[in-house]
Design a protein around this nucleic acid. Structure first.
Lengths: 135, 135
DNA sequence: TGTACACCCTGTAGGAACTACAGACTCAAT
DNA sequence: ATTGAGTCTGTAGTTCCTACAGGGTGTACA
């Protein structure tokens, strides 16, 4: 590895918690820029790539599609030059994020109730399903 | 349709917001019980199926895998007889749900800041990526 | 009664987002 | 110079859907 702040895909995988194969897949899918290469053809990464990959991982875990994440990353990269466009895309995602938070809160409350009741040994009728019937 | 509280897969799809093909897929995958059939072989559903499907849809949207949802549904169905087991599984999911809420909150704050700044016409340096670097 | 026409059936093949090899090459340490 | 872990490309498999094709069902209306 030529420089101390440059590292291999294995190290990137370890630091980001993203599978090596998945990293290469994200590169093919255009979510990560093609990295520099060592003389022997090894991919060379930097800290900024760890940050970006962590973001992708978290966003995926929260149910965003790769397409949505591409949009969010474009926001971060400020590829959409127009402030108006940044505003609009941001607002759309904001609405979605808030809806997800609401639903998770509801799920949280219900799970907490179940867990507490179960700790007491009294299993309540399960309200998990009903909670999502409406919203 | 034999009875008024019994309906076809098309109606179920409409009421739950889940694609017809996906409903059949969930049945194959064992997330939905095999429904009753009309004399001609049509699937017959009831309101309880709408509830269950809505739950699956929401949970998927929140990033849970079908396997995790199976677990949650088992909790709801109380297939896991032991209260201790219900407690443990519930607690695991509760921890996960709370972590998701934390991350979404962070994302919400950042998006809100960006959107507000953009409404003023001043584009800030983007903190979206950094937000997920640590947790 | 028959005949449209929308709906449903099974089965299979595709897409998205990974994941897991195989077979060959690289790199660092000895 | 050699060994062994790590990486390369390419391809094939998995999960979770999604979209037909080709055929049967249900009902409404003439």
């Amino acid at each position: 590895m030529p420089a101390p702040d440059v590292f291999s895909i294995g190290v990137l995988s370890e630091r980001s918690g993203v599978n090596i194969e998945t990293i290469r897949y994200y590169e093919r899918a255009g979510l990560l820029q093609k990295p520099a290469r060592s003389p022997g053809g090894y991919r060379l990464y930097r800290t900024v790539d760890v940050t970006r990959l962590c973001f992708i991982r978290r966003a995926r875990d929260l149910g965003f599609s790769l397409d949505e994440i591409r949009h969010l990353l474009d926001l971060a990269d400020q590829k959409s030059r127009s402030c108006r466009r940044v505003h609009d895309i941001g607002l759309t995602h904001l609405t979605e994020v808030r809806a997800k938070i609401r639903r998770l809160r509801r799920m949280e409350g219900i799970l907490a109730t179940m867990v507490k009741a179960c700790a007491n040994g009294t299993m309540p009728a399960c309200p998990l399903l009903e909670a999502f019937a409406s919203a």
